[in-house]
Design a protein around this nucleic acid. Structure first.
Length: 510
RNA sequence: GGUCCGUUCGUCUAGGGGUUAGGACGUAUCCCUUUCACGGAUGAAACACGGGUUCGAUUCCCGUACGGACUACCA
């Protein structure tokens, strides 16, 4: 094998059945980190073999979501490559030959039982407290090419009777696989049922398509969620029977993302309950029009989202928590992925976001603020937007929060907080602020420092404590009692505006 | 029900035969401060249980309990 061929090839293989779940994003991320770290290839394959569950727009959503979090594809749907097509529905013709190969080798068989018949059997047995399995024992009593005479089988097929191809799972065999995260996993073949490989509509099932495509595309490592662990032994069997065991990929089964409270897998319902997103991007259901919130739209920065997701089930073993994508690529390893599921804690995500937000430059945040303000019908200069970013960024978790509680920067207060005014609006304070108003025009360059210096000199001269003045001043200028640094706020409002508001207050309150 | 996988503070986790069991989020108190935040300091908070093995087990083994995944002609 040339060195070229030994370089890892990994794939992310979602189904376009709706918006990509955030857990799927993490799976894609781990694939990507591994690919980049090893100089390998990251592939996107669309597993759309179930035509009944196809959702328009889902594939575009997947592409956009991956792009948003910064996962670059080397090959696959959307970017092309040597193994096109990358949509399984378009590869339909490739699969049946392998299923037939298995039938010829005696490792698979045709089955004519309809889903209705099987469902009925399941129901009936369930009533008796046992589960039905299509397996080494029951297959002998069912309607398939193992029980039917050869002529009957060919006749049925020739007559166009619908059939599936099932894997003939051995009755007694120990199947082992060495998972990169879990170590050796043993499963007895008697526990595996005769899985359908080819459906009656001519499409392969996930199991066949997955194994065939992974082999054909030279996949070396299958990194996927723990929900696939139970079917991994089946896939081992498939690789073996297809004669591909020597080049079978390594498996790595990731721990699941769990509900924040209670039990179970993280689901869309949790998002509605907890008021947080479980999808990377906002998604509007094409049928119902229901909108599901997205991390991006909620104000999560993609770097923060990536960092947060990477740490759900993995850690570097050091005390560093803030990792850029490049650092994650450097540090990633399968050994440091934990085995147990991780509860989804949105507060940690918010903390990451806060950290990344303040790493942003004022200019970068201003670039966000300008259009957002414009949408609100507020026009500001770029310099003022930079000022707002500087004023607010250490105080908020999400960019949009820079605009809540800062209306006062653009609009004079309609009224004053009654808890402060009039009780703290004493004649003494009124005198100080009147003097402030009168002397402000002489300040050449009003900024936080000069504004503060002038107020200081006046309070000192009049023998009033600064602390007594600040609260009334804030209320008079902003209407409220809490908010960002007042001196900086005055700088942003501008001298004329401050004077105007003081004048207005003195008139209103005297 | 069956099979498989798992179990360290509320949460994410580090650690590992002898430790004051470490960090982060959250939380509490205090400090800073013109307010609210930010920031700083300090605190509360965990090895599921029972048996082994061992001088010694939270760490290794076995059970039990609990949790999760899977159990479709869905992926």
């Amino acid at each position: 094998m040339s060195p070229q061929n030994t370089r890892p090839r990994v794939r992310f293989a979602p189904s376009p059945t709706g918006p990509l779940h955030i857990g799927g994003v993490r799976t894609a991320l781990y694939n990507y980190l591994f690919a980049r770290q090893t100089g390998g290839t990251m592939i996107l394959r669309i597993e759309d073999t179930d035509q009944t569950r196809f959702v328009p727009g889902a594939e575009a959503y997947i592409l956009e979501a991956l792009k948003w979090v910064g996962i670059e594809l080397d090959e696959g749907q959307g970017v092309g490559g040597p193994h096109e097509p990358y949509r399984q529905s378009e590869r339909k013709a490739m699969y049946s030959q392998y299923a037939e190969q298995l039938v010829t080798a005696g490792k698979a068989y045709y089955a004519f039982d309809t889903s209705e018949q099987l469902d009925a059997m399941r129901q009936q047995l369930e009533g008796q407290g046992t589960a039905f399995q299509y397996n080494a024992i029951t297959r002998l009593k069912l309607n398939n090419s193992l029980t039917l005479p050869q002529e009957g089988v060919t006749a049925k097929i020739a007559a166009g009777e619908p059939y599936v191809i099932r894997l003939k799972v051995p009755a007694k065999e120990e199947i082992r696989l060495n998972d990169l995260i879990r170590g050796w996993v043993h499963v007895h073949s008697s526990q595996i049922d005769d899985k359908v490989l080819m459906k009656s509509d001519g499409m392969p099932t996930y199991h066949l398509a997955n194994v065939v495509d992974d082999h054909l595309m030279g996949i070396t490592h299958v990194i996927s969620g723990e929900e696939w662990l139970p079917s991994a032994p089946l896939h081992v069997l498939l690789y073996r029977y297809l004669g591909w065991e020597s080049t079978m990929p390594r498996f790595a089964h990731l721990p699941l993302l769990l509900k924040p409270d209670g039990n179970g897998k993280l689901s869309k319902r949790d998002a509605d309950l907890g008021g947080f997103p479980v999808f990377p991007l906002q998604w509007t259901d094409p049928e119902t029009g229901t909108v599901a919130r997205g991390f991006r739209e909620e104000g999560y920065l993609s770097d923060a989202t990536v960092n947060f997701l990477a740490f759900l089930g993995w850690n570097p073993g050091t005390e560093q928590e803030l990792f850029s994508m490049d650092e994650l690529i450097q540090s990633f390893s399968f050994e440091r992925i934990s085995k147990s599921g991780a509860k989804f804690d949105i507060q940690k995500a918010q903390w990451f976001n806060q950290q990344y937000l303040r790493q942003q430059s004022d200019e970068a945040l201003a670039a966000y603020l300008l259009p957002a303000l414009e949408a609100k019908g507020i026009g500001v200069t770029p310099q003022k937007a930079v000022g707002i970013a500087r004023l607010m960024k250490d105080r908020v978790t999400f960019p949009q929060e820079m605009l809540t509680g800062t209306e006062f920067l653009f609009v004079p207060p309609a009224g004053y907080d009654p808890a402060v005014i009039p009780s703290k609006w004493t004649p003494e304070i009124a005198l100080v602020l009147a003097a402030y108003k009168d002397e402000l025009p002489s300040v050449e360059n009003l900024n936080a420092d000069t504004a503060k210096a002038l107020l200081h000199s006046i309070t000192e001269r009049q023998g009033v404590k600064m602390g007594k003045v600040m609260q009334p001043l804030r209320v008079v200028l902003t209407g409220g009692t809490t908010g960002p640094d007042l001196m900086l706020s005055m700088e942003l409002m501008g001298k004329e505006e401050v004077i105007g508001r003081l004048e207005l207050a003195l008139n209103r309150l005297s």
